[in-house]
Amino acid sequence: MSATYYIGVDGSGPSRAALRWGVRRAAERNAAVVLVNTVDDEWGLVGRDAAADAERQARELLAEESERVAALHTGVTLTTRIVHGGTAWELARLPRPEDLLIVGTHKTGFLRGRVLGSRSVQIASAARCSVAIVPDTTLDSRHDVVVGVDGSDGCVPAVRIGAQEADRLDQDLLLVYAPPGRSDATEDRSPQTARLLFNAAAVASATASRITVRRRVAHRDPAEALLDASFDAALLILGVSARHGENALIGSVTHDVLMNINVPVLIARGTAATSESASLASTVSV
């Protein structure tokens, strides 16, 4: 069954950046698109007229954004949905595990923070499918695909998807590993690190044989290393460990990346292919 692309829309700049990114990708992959707008149920508490007005505004917004999609790519199969409740949780529950959820974010730049205050962080944590978070920033002239490698089971689907994306975009793939607990400039020549990156590169090459795969060990905070490596990248891909089930929350590194986002970030979750990935995970992990 083919994946469906769910795109959260609200008429904002980040929402439209996500719309452009998602529709272009869907057109290239012949994927159906569902535009989703949420209506907060609290409007019903204000009064029946307010709730009806909110519903009307949602319909008008979806009609306007549907016209944008038609102008971007006329061949895309498009439907719309209005859901009621909290935006993050209602968006997260719609897609199937094999689908892709795409949202925009106002977070751009280096605004450090550890509070779970960003809607994109909430969505990425709650979703059971892969999630793309797109900042409202210039995406022209970007190159290469970056994948964060950490040796967990979640990095295997991330590497595979990264290889597929690099192949699709005709770009290099850069694998970045920041050893935990190491922030000094001492070069890491440990056999475990070398084996981790070698095996990850092998997974990438087996997925897309014609791409160029580069490897980097970064001796700094992992989130900062990933943001730095992907500053001019077309896409940054991070995995989510499946050890705690399909609804596992994102880790602290992914959280910090999303709070300081400067590039489209794809949070890759394994689906039906997870059982196939298990043997690769045992090979890649150290």
Rank of each mutant, 00 (worst) to 15 (best):
L173Y: 02
I123L: 06
A185M: 02
L174Y: 00
S125E: 06
L196R: 05
R182T: 13
Q192D: 14
D140K: 04
L197F: 04
P135V: 05
R119C: 12
G117D: 15
V159L: 08
S152H: 06
R182I: 15
V159G: 12
V145A: 07
Q164M: 02
V115G: 08
I123A: 08
V134F: 12
D150Y: 03
V134P: 12
P157V: 14
A178S: 15
S183N: 01
F198S: 14
D136Q: 06
G154K: 04
D172T: 10
G113Y: 01
E165K: 07
T137L: 12
A200Q: 06
L175Q: 01
V121M: 09
D167H: 10
S118L: 05
S125M: 03
D144P: 07
L116C: 00
D172R: 11
A200P: 11
V145R: 05
V149K: 01
R182F: 13
D140V: 11
A132S: 09
V147I: 05
S120I: 02
A124K: 02
A194G: 09
L116D: 00
V121K: 04
G162L: 03
Q122W: 01
T193Y: 04
A166N: 04
V159T: 11
D172Y: 00
G162A: 11
T186M: 06
F198T: 15
G117H: 14
T193N: 02
V176R: 01
D136E: 14
A185D: 14
R182M: 14
V145D: 08
T137E: 12
G162Q: 05
V159C: 13
L197H: 11
T137N: 06
A132H: 07
E165N: 03
V121P: 00
V115L: 15
S152Q: 10
V145F: 10
L174R: 07
R142N: 06
I123S: 05
H143C: 04
T137G: 07
S190L: 04
L197I: 05
R168I: 08
R142H: 07
L175V: 01
R142E: 10
S118E: 03
V149G: 11
V156Q: 10
S120A: 15
L139E: 10
V149I: 14
D172L: 03
P191C: 09
V159K: 11
L174F: 00
L173Q: 03
G151C: 02
C129E: 01
